[in-house]
Design a protein around this nucleic acid. Structure first.
Length: 819
DNA sequence: AAAAAAC
């Protein structure tokens, strides 16, 4: 469906075609005598003042008649007006386009309420524009210029442009959010996240007092009974304690990793947990309240079977293929398309061990697992990255490599195809971005073409594909500085914005293209993008890019790249779903992951609230009514909009992010969350993957996801880079079984809690925060275990105190290491 | 149902 209006009614695609400007309806006879049209905007170097303009008028009338165009246009009065506007475009293209676009948009969009919202937002926009003021002025004066600068294309071309790079830095100033991010990253050591926590904890002292109160809370909360019910299911909570046994299992996993000789201490730590269990002792009483759970216990009867499945987790992946059919009728055909033939996955089967270990072990069989500790003491330079790249990474706040980076960077530099799996927030972007830049430089040098100068019109040699525009932008934010550090150029190619800048950038020459499939394919078809020299292709969120609807465009795009080019596939949930691509494009790929990492991160507290659907919106408001950044997921765009509205009615500042918004609003709304102007973002799954916003400490799934992968990615928006966060999923009662199954696949252990309006949601969130912080403290303890005496912690009763000690020790350890 | 193109 034609989403976009054609402002000029005519031939949109040619607006950016130089030949069109000369000979098309825009050009007109008035220009017959001049070899070049010249600029019509004052201040432009090529500005041609009077000669053209009077002729414009003539052309628009007399000339039209003379050329036989008058009748055509006169038939459409509206377009007659628009025609002149297009002339205006020469004078101030940006304006006329925008307005033309806007009018149709408003007309087209029956969602004018949304617009009205836009206008509400526009005030902020105007504020933004105050910031952007220079830009907007530039556009009015010479839109093309400002666009060009955004593209950075002009600069390369113009040697002067490099002098102008200050403007680039200005752009980045405009990118304030980015700079903030970087600042944050720079600060992160300082903040050491811990400090943020500390601040929180400074606040929390009050909380700790609350905890003194907690006895009353638990007493007070007869309401918790529902919770206990859940736990009754879990009889379970012993079972949960068993869960801890599961953790023991994980300890077994450690055994796997061998790393976890350390985990023994953890078990000691768990001696601390008894205290928690004491809390839960309170809960049992509650659980007695709920006799409802028998049904749940039945579910668990099902679970055993599942657990059987788990031994075979390679099987799982296979199961998932099988499951796909179950879940999604559409998928069967897709699966049949070739997954079974994969030579890659069969290898997994061969390696399949039926050790007591979970699928993690099985994955190891297929993947080279790096121990998290293996990255300790390793620098980016050690991994093979050059000095410029290393310093650029430092500027980005990446002082030393994360495990996934340590694992994949050397392999990428070797030129091998790589499949990389690292959990959400583990640093995958740098894991592929930095070595891609480095390798491009190496290849360039080897080819002898390296001259250090940007060559006009040279073709891109690397391509990074992402599933959403926001993610593509975010990747560019990371990769662009790295590329710039060695004199390479990147550009974003994604839809929803005018092509002009993107095409202009490509014409000036770009080394790395970062974008989304739609526009990339569009530009390929228009022959404005030539991928024939692309020797490195990266698929971020690769498994998603292999989903129905994405796979085929992605395949077509990759086929346009150089034969035998290097392929890098990354995702937190990389699974055999990528077999279709692996089989066609990859050669003997190296598979890397981080040992012992699973999504059931101790930095994220997961809970499911079983609610009445009619109370959902109010409950979301109750949960979101807090300090701290909250991300709310909705299944549909309409409900996202509805929820946003409801939250606003509730007095909670919230913005939406979904595909029904135009790109500028999408970008702005996301930026508002990033900058902290708004604390609540209500999004569809457009924001499920990859998007990084610092300090989101609560993810609310107003609609439960259908796939475990979606659950993992959504929840991965919080608890990033070692910070803690909570995930609350709202489900109706009749969805409990499905949810249990989904969580089972995701390997996440979750408490189900019956909740209704009037319950203490804030208290629930506080409890969750305390619990996850305690877990995180234990993890942190593992990290600094060599320095801390475990007994020191065992004696700690107050979680806050434990955290404080751990942080102090951690800081001391850091200093020691640094010194 | 959502995402990804529509200048």
């Amino acid at each position: 469906m034609p989403k976009n209006k054609k402002p000029q009614g005519g031939r949109p695609a040619k607006n950016f075609d130089p030949s069109y400007a000369k000979g098309g309806s825009k050009g007109g006879p008035a220009r017959a005598g001049s070899s070049k049209p010249g600029s019509r905007s004052e201040g432009h170097r090529g500005y041609r003042p009077e000669a053209d303009e009077p002729r414009k008028e003539r052309w628009s009338r007399d000339e039209r008649v003379a050329t036989g165009r008058a009748p055509h246009r006169s038939e459409r009065d509206g377009r007659d007006e628009r025609g002149p506007r297009s002339y205006d475009r020469n004078d101030r293209p940006a304006r006329s386009y925008d307005r033309d676009d806007r009018a149709p948009r408003s007309n087209d969009r029956n969602d004018r309420p949304a617009r009205s919202y836009d206008r509400d937002d526009r005030a902020p926009r105007s504020n933004d524009r105050n910031d952007r003021a220079p830009r907007s002025f530039d556009r009015n004066d010479s839109a093309p210029r400002s666009f060009d600068r955004n593209d950075r294309n002009d600069r390369p071309a113009r040697s002067f442009d490099r002098d102008d790079r200050a403007p680039r830095s200005n752009d980045r100033n405009d990118r304030a959010p980015r700079s903030f991010d970087r600042n944050d990253r720079n600060d992160r050591p300082a903040r050491s996240f811990d400090r943020n926590d500390r601040n929180d904890r400074n606040d929390r002292p009050a909380r700790s007092f609350d905890r003194d109160d907690r006895a009353p809370r638990s007493n007070d909360r007869n309401d918790r009974a529902p919770r206990s019910f859940d736990r009754n299911d879990r009889n379970d909570r012993p079972a949960r304690s068993f869960d801890r046994n599961d953790r023991n299992d994980r300890n077994d996993r450690p055994a796997r990793s061998f790393d976890r000789d350390d985990r023994a201490p953890r078990s000691f730590d768990r001696n601390d947990r008894p205290a928690r269990s004491f809390d839960r002792n309170d809960r049992p009483a509650r659980s007695f309240d709920r006799n409802d759970r028998p049904a749940r216990s039945f579910d668990r009867n099902d679970r055993p079977a599942r657990s059987f499945d788990r031994p075979d987790r390679p099987a799982r992946s296979y199961d998932r293929d099988d499951r796909a059919p179950r879940r999604d009728v559409d998928r069967p055909g897709f699966k049949e398309s070739g997954r079974r033939d994969s030579s890659f996955y069969p290898a997994k089967e061969q390696g399949n061990r039926f050790a007591p270990n979970d699928d993690v072990v099985l994955e190891r069989l297929e993947a080279q697992a790096i121990q998290a500790t293996d990255a300790d003491g390793v620098s980016f330079a050690d991994l093979g990255l050059g000095g410029n790249v290393v310093s650029a990474l430092k500027q980005l706040g990446a002082e030393s490599p994360f495990p996934i980076q340590a694992a994949t960077i050397p392999v990428v530099l070797e030129g091998r195809d790589v499949l990389g799996r690292g959990k959400t927030g583990s640093g995958k972007t740098i894991a592929f971005g930095a070595p891609t830049v480095e390798r491009l430089m190496k290849l360039w040098a080897e080819s002898g073409k390296a001259g250090g100068k940007r060559q006009m019109g040279r073709k891109p040699r690397a391509l990074i594909l992402a599933p959403t525009r926001e993610l593509a932008l975010q990747i560019d934010r990371t990769v662009q500085p790295i590329a710039q550090s060695v004199g390479l150029f990147t550009t974003q190619i994604y839809g929803g914005v005018p092509q002009q800048r993107q095409v202009g950038a490509l014409q000036r020459g770009v080394d790395i293209v970062i974008g989304t499939p739609g526009r990339i394919e569009d530009l390929i078809e228009q022959r404005r993008l030539d991928l024939s020299e692309v020797v490195i292709t990266v698929l971020d969120e690769a498994d998603h890019m292999c989903d129905l609807g994405f796979l085929e465009p992605v395949q077509r795009i990759i086929r346009h790249t150089a034969n035998g080019g290097q392929k890098l596939l990354f995702s937190a949930t990389l699974d055999k779903g990528v077999a279709a691509l692996v089989d066609e494009f990859l050669v003997d790929p190296a598979v890397h992951e981080v040992a012992g990492e699973d999504q059931a991160s101790s930095t994220i507290e997961h809970r499911v609230f079983v609610i009445g659907n009619h109370e959902k919106r109010d409950i979301v408001a109750e949960l979101a009514n807090r300090e701290g950044k909250t991300l709310v997921f909705s299944r549909t765009r309409a409900f996202a909009e509805d929820l946003t509205e409801h939250l606003e009615d509730y007095g909670i500042r919230a913005v939406a992010l979904h595909g029904d918004l135009n790109q500028s609003r999408r970008t702005r709304n996301l930026q508002q969350l990033t900058s902290g102007r708004v604390n609540v973002l209500v999004a569809t799954d457009v924001a499920a993957r990859g998007i990084h916003v610092d300090d989101i400490d609560l993810v609310i799934q107003a609609d439960a996801p259908d796939e475990y992968k979606t659950y993992l990615h959504r929840s991965g928006r919080t608890g990033r880079a070692g910070k803690t966060g909570q995930v609350v999923t709202l489900i109706p009662r009749n969805r409990q079984r499905r949810m249990v199954e989904l969580l089972d696949r995701a390997e996440i252990d979750v408490d189900f809690v019956d909740m209704r309006l009037g319950d203490d949601f804030a208290g629930e969130l506080e409890r969750g925060a305390a619990a996850v912080e305690a877990d995180a403290a234990v993890e942190t303890l593992d990290a600094v275990e060599a320095i801390i005496e475990i007994d020191d912690v065992v004696e700690i009763i107050e979680v806050e105190e434990a955290i404080e000690i751990v942080e102090t020790e951690s800081a001391a350890a850091d200093e020691e290491l640094a010194g």
